[in-house]
């Protein structure tokens, strides 16, 4: 589905440049746009972040509540990921129920966090089967200039690392909130890397006009140990198995680079 009508001449230009190993904004095929990460920008949220990826801007807020665990996982806390393509972010975004792109993005970010077990959910159990921490991760896209998945995924991780949860004590089978806060227990740092297929070449971090010209995109999420937690192919084109493996190796390298921007050790 095309979001902004990029003229055919422009699309051809982009395709020709990529075919010769270059991009319109001067980047190499494997270069990300400048990235800026800020945390703690929304004081009323338990955790928050703002990521600028080129001109793409995403804010993530984390809210923490107490609720019931899932019946089949009574000893684990719960988290959900939601995304909002806010209408002010693009002429193509409309107010109303989430679009399929918005839902896909939330689910891909969720998968990265869930499968890498980034949040230590067992540490979020207060009374097994009855009371656990519930973590709400809300992705708010404020400006769409391409590659919303990587920006959102990075912002979600940064916000989680910024999150402080209130300490509850268990008294007579009820929970009581104290005035103390501890960091949300995070034990893995999943990073999503998205590549696009243009002119049979793979480019990293497509910006908006490149997304119009691409035939397919591939998002690969790597955890701290170099294991893949999630993959999502998007777009109406197709890829060869060789391209997919090539993308995986490039993504692994880039994930290590990007992780350093968010995890300061």
């Amino acid at each position: 589905m095309s979001s902004i009508m990029v003229s055919r001449i422009r699309q051809k230009q982009i395709a020709q440049m990529v075919a010769s190993g270059k991009r319109l904004d001067g980047r190499g095929l494997n270069d990300y746009r400048p990235i800026k990460v800020e945390t703690g920008i929304i004081e009323k949220a338990e955790g928050s972040s703002r990521v600028l990826l080129g001109k793409t801007e995403v804010v993530v807020g984390v809210k923490v509540e107490i609720g019931e665990p899932f019946p089949d996982r009574p000893n684990e806390g719960v988290f959900t990921v939601n995304s909002e393509f806010v209408p002010l972010a693009s002429p193509e975004f409309e107010a109303g129920p989430p679009s399929e792109e918005s839902i896909e993005l939330a689910r891909v970010v969720d998968r990265g966090i869930r499968e890498s077990k980034a949040i230590d959910l067992e540490k979020l159990c207060l009374i097994p089967g009855r009371k656990v921490y519930v973590i709400f991760i809300d992705i708010y896209v404020l400006n769409h200039d391409g590659n919303l998945i990587d920006a959102s995924s990075l912002a979600a991780l940064a916000a989680l690392l910024n999150t402080k949860i209130p300490v509850y004590i268990v008294e007579e089978n009820e929970v009581k909130k104290t005035n103390n806060y501890i960091p949300l227990p995070i034990r893995n740092y999943p990073i999503s890397i998205t590549l696009a297929n243009i002119s049979d070449k793979l480019i990293v971090d497509p910006w908006l006009e490149e997304e119009e010209a691409m035939s397919a995109r591939l998002t690969i999420t790597f955890d701290n140990d170099g294991r893949i937690s999630a993959i999502q192919k998007g777009g109406t084109g197709a890829l060869t198995p060789q391209q997919i493996m090539e993308a995986a190796y490039i993504a692994k390298e880039k994930a290590e680079e990007l992780r350093k921007m968010v995890v300061k050790n």
Partner: peptide
């Protein structure tokens, strides 16, 4: 998969795999 063209048009993964394991699963 599109078998005569040899192209992959849907690809997802959830879980935890090394790149090599993913390669094996893909094949």
């Amino acid at each position: 998969y599109m078998p005569n063209l040899g192209l992959i048009s849907l690809l997802q993964m959830d879980g935890s795999l090394t790149i090599e394991e993913f390669n094996q699963a893909l094949n």
